[in-house]
Design a protein around this nucleic acid. Structure first.
Lengths: 273, 273
DNA sequence: TTTCCAAAATATGTCGGAGTAATGGATCAC
DNA sequence: GTGATCCATTACTCCGACATATTTTGGAAA
């Protein structure tokens, strides 16, 4: 009488594998390691409902069936269901009121920059308009971040960026290590800005961009080698050249956008106009 | 023990053990304090814990007392406490694991751009560094948004901005209507960009900026009249002048930052160096 | 003594049910 | 037609029990 409906939740081993996709070769303390907390049951419900909402299966304004009905339909207890709903409500996806039930909120209330919401958005076929919006935002924020980083970067951050670049050179973007190095590079760059708000925002966008690389992989067209672009950014930052860093980063983002769009066109040729 | 900690929201009366001296005039209902869908019990717990964490009362790495213990301490059921914790976990503030307990996550895991988290951050004395970071981000995003708006604004958005400007002129920023008009202006500007990601981000920042106006009010120094700055932005957008709009918005944000810093200096002279 | 595995201890996770409170809509009076 | 009142529906809260996961420990084996 368990939650067979939830599919991915049920298999214990599956969850373990998902949680274990952490980076190899991490020598940090076990506590700090990204040991993913195996998704709980309510976590699975969040994911299921979150994806359903983001994919448009439940449109804004739609009323979900009552707690008892829905919980029974999912074969979970009301507690688990309610905790999931609370999380969705915390992210602005739904709102619950006595007598009125819980309804899907209009899209402009959604916390689209929440990492989980982004993950749910990219779980299905991503919306091309939304991807374009994200890249537009990225093309605003990241060059500015690079400019600030060029002004404030300390030796420590520069060293980390250099290390990440070396790792990118060693592995390619085709490997998980390479992509991890890419993330590390941007992460180190953001840390160099010494701006918490920028870091949080870029972390969200980075996660989203990460999902797009998944599509690049799926398409046959190999993306161009992004290493030279990254190196230009690094050189400018190391030289303290704010304008140069911003311009180099602008180009980097622009190329990433083109690659992603090409990949999406290749994956879903119909949608390309 | 102390249900009073949770403020206005509280239920049971028979839970009180000793010295239940009902204070007269305490018959206020949750609706009195909050508008719209009044905060539920678990909402109050979220707020209390969220503020405690953001203010540093619970430092990253700290372990919260167990569910039973903490729930009993707050005089709430375990269910309500758990739902609150799930919400905090959804915003990246804490993480719960069996046997290990619930711990406050490191600051870089917090969703600092979540509207609720921002509200909690500004519930106490705001961190000056964080305010500076937010304004730096705002000075990156909003001018760029204004530039895009100048390129894409349709008649509808322009009309809304014009209406908001008129309202700002009629009332001042000292009134709630005036501040609402200010928000409407920025909201209309963002809508003109036709970029969902930008809209969500700016909405969060707008909420944060709104909290800072609270401090401007608290200080004696009246902020300068921001109307001319807004009008310059509008004129540039209406004329389709992207560079002009960006520059005008840059100045607007810069002045807002100076006003806010002055207000914070006046409120807390010690921290000013 | 050191290493490793197994069982216990403990805190979170899940469950089902009962009762409370609040709200939206129908009903009724004016 | 307009307003206030009543009521059914729904989420909200509480409770107590059991399940599950993970750390800790203690003991067996090397």
């Amino acid at each position: 009488m368990l939650a067979a409906v939830l599919g991915p939740v049920q298999g214990k081993t599956e969850q373990v594998t998902v949680a274990m996709v952490t980076r190899v070769g991490e020598t940090k303390r076990p506590q700090d390691a990204v040991k993913g907390p195996g998704r709980r049951l309510h976590g699975a419900i969040e994911h299921k409902l979150g994806v359903a909402i983001l994919s448009g299966e439940y449109a804004p304004g739609d009323k979900l069936s009552g707690e008892v009905a829905f919980a029974e339909e999912l074969n979970v207890s009301r507690s688990a269901y309610r905790e999931a709903i609370q999380v969705l409500a915390a992210k602005g996806l739904v709102e619950s009121r006595p007598k009125a039930g819980t309804r899907v909120l209009p899209r402009h209330r959604w916390n689209l920059l929440d990492p989980d919401v982004l993950a749910w958005a990219f779980a299905g076929e991503p919306d091309r308009k939304f991807v374009a919006d994200l890249f537009e935002l990225r093309s605003i924020v990241e060059p500015a971040a690079a400019r600030i980083a060029a002004q404030r970067a300390d030796k420590q951050s520069l060293k980390e960026m250099k290390t990440a670049l070396a790792a990118m050179r060693r592995h390619t973007l085709a490997t998980e290590e390479g992509r991890a190095a890419d993330r590390d590079f941007h992460k180190a760059l953001l840390q160099a800005t010494a701006n918490d708000a920028l870091q949080v925002l870029a972390a969200s966008m980075g996660a989203a961009v990460n999902w797009t690389t998944h599509f690049k992989q799926r398409s046959r067209a190999l993306p161009r080698n992004p290493l030279p672009d990254h190196e230009r950014v690094y050189q400018a930052i190391a030289a303290g050249d704010g304008d140069g860093a911003a311009e180099a980063m602008r180009i980097l983002v622009q190329l990433a956008l083109e690659d992603t769009q090409d990949a999406m066109d290749a994956t879903d040729p119909e949608a390309a106009r």
